[in-house]
Nucleic acid binder design. Structure first.
Lengths: 139, 139
DNA sequence: CGGAATCCTCGAAGATACTG
DNA sequence: CAGTATCTTCGAGGATTCCG
């Protein structure tokens, strides 16, 4: 339903059958685009926050340390464009805008949460690794 | 063992107890650093490829479409620095260098594989969403 | 083969100011 | 409150060259 018989030439979990380049610039292989979105610093944080329920624009801004209005808006727009986030305007005065996840967005926020849990669990290991690496190489 | 009683102020899967900023620039909160690495375009692809087993430098270069020597080297260095990838030099002539995952690296590559599977599964949905969004807004 | 070093560009992203 | 618009910087990353 998504695309017709274009099997994505991408590394999947197990043994890769072919040795074609990952993320080759074939017309149908937009996988890099999607991964870039997922990998985006702000997107990840927004998805994580919205995973706990809808939030207003200002709540997101306060919830994400160091994000500028511009970047928050851009991030929300592209997430909305990708069908991951819904923008809900309540035309009061002043207007109230809530952001929530779409069903597909929720599945992504699950992945993101898993990723954050990984990072959380291995923060110490990574820090130690960096220290020992730096000490070895600075010599 | 990692750090003493510094509970990471990060969004976890379920309900967040506090409303502190995600990724606040506290000294101990290096989570953003780790997430940035995870989110890095090239790192993700390298981890995905190495998830299927060790590869040589040139194999990685051929395996990742569009990566420059510089970026491949930088990516591998920082992954090595983070304790996720091991660099193995066989001092033949010409030298042979293999890269493989550390145990912790393998756990990350699992996460990455999951992410790629997500992207793969929803590539079509995202593409459609973008199309309809663009049509609505271009008016 | 597997890099390191250098130069340079170009676009992501911050700062600022204004608005419905 | 929830943005948009504009200007500007700054550093990630590509291209190129050289090396053990």
């Amino acid at each position: 339903m998504t695309e017709e018989g274009t099997l994505p030439r991408v590394a999947h979990t197990g043994v890769r059958s072919s040795r074609e380049p990952v993320g080759a610039a074939t017309p149908t292989c937009r996988l890099r685009d999607v991964l870039d979105r997922v990998g985006d610093k702000w997107s990840v944080l927004v998805m994580a926050l919205l995973g706990d329920g809808p939030l207003r624009y200002s709540e997101l801004q306060r919830g994400i340390d160091g994000i500028s209005q511009r970047m928050l808006t851009l991030t929300l727009r592209s997430l909305e464009r990708d069908g991951l986030v819904i923008r809900n305007v309540t035309p009061t005065s002043p207007p109230r805008v809530d952001y929530s996840l779409t069903p597909v967005g929720r599945t992504l926020s699950t992945e993101v949460a898993s990723l954050i849990r990984w990072a959380d669990a291995h923060i110490g290991y990574v820090a130690e690794s960096r220290d020992t690496y730096d000490q070895r190489t600075q010599a």
